[in-house]
Design a protein around this nucleic acid. Sequence first.
DNA 1: CGGAATCCCCTGTGATACTG
DNA 2: CAGTATCACAGGGGATTCCG
Lengths: 148, 148
Amino acid sequence: MSPTHTEVTTAPAPTLATAPADLDPCGHEDHPDCGIRDVLDRIGDKWSVLVIVELAGGPRRFRELQRAIHGISQRMLTLTVRRLERDGLVLRTVYPTVPAQVDYRLTETGSSLTHLVKALTDWSLTHRPVIAEARDAYDRDHPDHDIR
Amino acid sequence: MSPTHTEVTTAPAPTLATAPADLDPCGHEDHPDCGIRDVLDRIGDKWSVLVIVELAGGPRRFRELQRAIHGISQRMLTLTVRRLERDGLVLRTVYPTVPAQVDYRLTETGSSLTHLVKALTDWSLTHRPVIAEARDAYDRDHPDHDIR
DNA sequence: CGGAATCCCCTGTGATACTG
DNA sequence: CAGTATCACAGGGGATTCCG
């Protein structure tokens, strides 16, 4: 890594006015396990959100999902939909045909997540350029760092 | 894992009407790398959102952050704020005092994320009971599975 | 105080092969 | 088609130690 972060400031050290966390998702001051953790552990993985996005377009079969979600392996798709099913976000239906046919669709709860996902993608698309620029600037000022 | 998922349905297999993904974050049909990936890779990790939540309450020093975010290690806090700094979501300021003093605060871009985070925590708090119930039900119907 | 450097484990994920 | 079963591996992340 670069020879240690060394960009200092000449300004005097301020006394941080311990501002209150007006966004505190918990009830009390010491964030013990903020409910947010639940969501993150659930949709914060590599594929869940993409599955939800795809299912937001309507029911999909296993292969359809796999084809739609570029790069996901069979194994991960299985694990992802299973977890979503377990959490009640996705409904899995098996039709006793031959060969087997299974479809997945969002439950009521799952659908309520699509708004958030939409907001996330919107934010992403809006700020992507700014972030890319910030990144380039950082990488320019900090040659040979290994962040990410 | 349990002897294979075997909950079938008696209903006839429907012909999925390939509904359009009206939530498609990409421009075209085949989701190649949906912009959503960018956000997820950025705030979808274990700690970033918690740091953002804390900084939403105002500037914080390194130790303050670590104390506020229960369970985070020194190493991960460092890595997390570095990545956020690199992406231009957090501003890091070093005061040449002795011992060193550093504070972190959200940038304009970073602040714009607090709305989303708030929405996420709200959703989490609202649906937590339902999800917990779904989970229990699943675990009851599928004894000895190893999902998650 | 605010890190950086190491060591190490464990989990998530991919690749491949097999099955009802 | 829709999985399951294994193997194999990179990297995320924790604990500890050292430094300016």
